[in-house]
Amino acid sequence: MSRNQSHTPEGRALGRRGFLSAAALGGATIVGASALGALDADAAFAAPTPSLDPAVTTTAFAEGRIAGRNGSMLEVAGSYGDTYRIQLTNATSIWKVHPTTADAIEPGDGLYARGVPMPDGSIAADAVWVNIVNLHCTVRGIGRDRLHLAHGTHTVVGRIVPGTTSASYRGGALTSDLSRLRIGQDAQVLGAWRPSDDTVDIVRVTVGH
């Protein structure tokens, strides 16, 4: 059985997205926040997805900031004035710096979510990425616990998170050794934005030449 499938009591294979639909529609399987999350987001996307036209999608995507929460339903204010309702299920993978649970989600957080559109207009989420950013930057300063980065015409403070922040140099394996970072390097920073102070917790910094 693939990682992306479970089975019904009758023994039929049930794809993850089908499971999500059933979970959200069934209601009873939507569980409390403490039991949510920590699933592998990569597994949510293992099934081939047909694609014929850029205007046609088989799953739904949402982005914006979390305006409120009603149990396992997130109310999201989109960046273009639209609104979304994101249903968390016990199959939803949640990322915020690392795989986590719904307990880590706070009002004001930014969010990207992908899942299955439900008849009531909500989205039953396969995966939710909270505050995730992936920025192409230039290293402008290096401190003991932070990097000063230029992103376009703006500056970003990247926080080094002990035990979490890692680096990759010239395509090499990830390492916790940040000593080879240099001012002026182009860098790709994957991390989590902190709405409270507008800094970014660095998960991974990749530098090339």
Binding site: G110, L135, G152, H154
Partner: peptide, 29 residues
């Protein structure tokens, strides 16, 4: 392939703009 943000957005992506073509949006394919 990597990923990036563009258009109206939250956090550091809020300054990304519409890209070289002017109509790039993070929420579109």
């Amino acid at each position: 392939t990597t990923w990036f943000c563009c258009g109206s957005a939250w956090g550091p992506c809020g300054s990304a703009g519409g890209g070289a073509c002017g109509n790039c949006r993070s929420s579109a394919n």
